[in-house]
Each structure stands twice: as structure tokens, then as C-alpha cells.
């Protein structure tokens, strides 16, 4: 598996590349225990998803990437699309996804087909994420 570099402009490039289709961008780190606890649930969402795309972004540095990869393999997420933070200017990377994001994790951007973004700080069972997934089902 491979972590594609996630640098300045990456969020815009991702939403552009997935335009026309709903997209989830999920940010996580090996230094975030709640992220690791819920990673299997994200693996399940990625495996069963229909009608939307999902991208995972590991916010750790290069020195943590082996550990991140081991986690991904453990939960069976190797075949998903993965990015890794490749720029120490993290404020910029946060800002591009959500100008109010200070780096708290887990963090998820729910992107509509027209590019509209709703962000969620916190766990996968957040009502906004659950509703978003339900809405995709109705469609």
C-alpha cells in the first residue's frame, strides 16, 4: 500500500477529482487513540460503501508512517485510497479543509457532489456522519 503525499492544495484537488460524487475525507493519526478505536468501523464503511467515495488521510509525519500502515493493514483497509501529511505547515492543511479546524482528531469532511463541505470533529457515530450515510442510502 501507498500513502500519497497530502500537501498544500490537496483538499481542493481531492474535492475536484471526486466532483459529481459524494466524498468522505477522513483524517486520523496513530497518536489519537479514539481514531484507532474506530478505524475498524471506517474499514467497514469503506468496504460496504455504495454511491460515494472515501479517502483516508493520515496526519502523522514520515516517522510514524510505518506504524500507520500497520494499523491500516490490521483493520483491512489496505485497498482504500490513502494519503499522508507531507507538509509541516499543518495550519494550512487544516485551513483548506475547514478554516476553524485546529487539528483535533478524528476529523471528517463530508463533501457533497457540488463541492459543499460539512465537517465533523469526533467519532464516526456523530449524528452528522450517520445522517450523511443515511441520506446516501435513500439516494
Amino acid at each position: 500500500m501507498d500513502f500519497k503525499p497530502y500537501g498544500r492544495g490537496a483538499f481542493g484537488q481531492l474535492t475536484k477529482a471526486h466532483a459529481g460524487k459524494p466524498l468522505i475525507v477522513h483524517y486520523w493519526s496513530v497518536t489519537c487513540p479514539p481514531c484507532l478505536v474506530e478505524l475498524p468501523q471506517w474499514a467497514k464503511i469503506a468496504a460496504e460503501k455504495k454511491g460515494f467515495d472515501i479517502v483516508f488521510v493520515n496526519t502523522d509525519g514520515d516517522d510514524e508512517r510505518a506504524r500507520a500502515q500497520a494499523r491500516i493493514e490490521k483493520v483491512g483497509l489496505s485497498r482504500a485510497e490513502h494519503y499522508g501529511f507531507a507538509d509541516a505547515f499543518v495550519e494550512k492543511l487544516y485551513f483548506e479543509a475547514d478554516s476553524a479546524w485546529r487539528g483535533e482528531l478524528p476529523f471528517t469532511a463530508l463533501v457533497a457532489p457540488d463541492g459543499g463541505v460539512v465537517t465533523v470533529t469526533g467519532a464516526v457515530d456523530d449524528p452528522l456522519i450517520v445522517e450523511w450515510l443515511e441520506k446516501r442510502v435513500r439516494k
Binding site: Q41, K44, I45, E48, D125, V130, E134
Partner: peptide, 13 residues
Amino acid sequence: MMRLVLALLALAA
């Protein structure tokens, strides 16, 4: 997909 959502809620619980 609804099954997945329900599974999520169950996991949350």
C-alpha cells in the same frame, strides 16, 4: 447501507 448505519449505531452503543 442502512444495515451499515445500524451497525454503526450498535457499535457506538
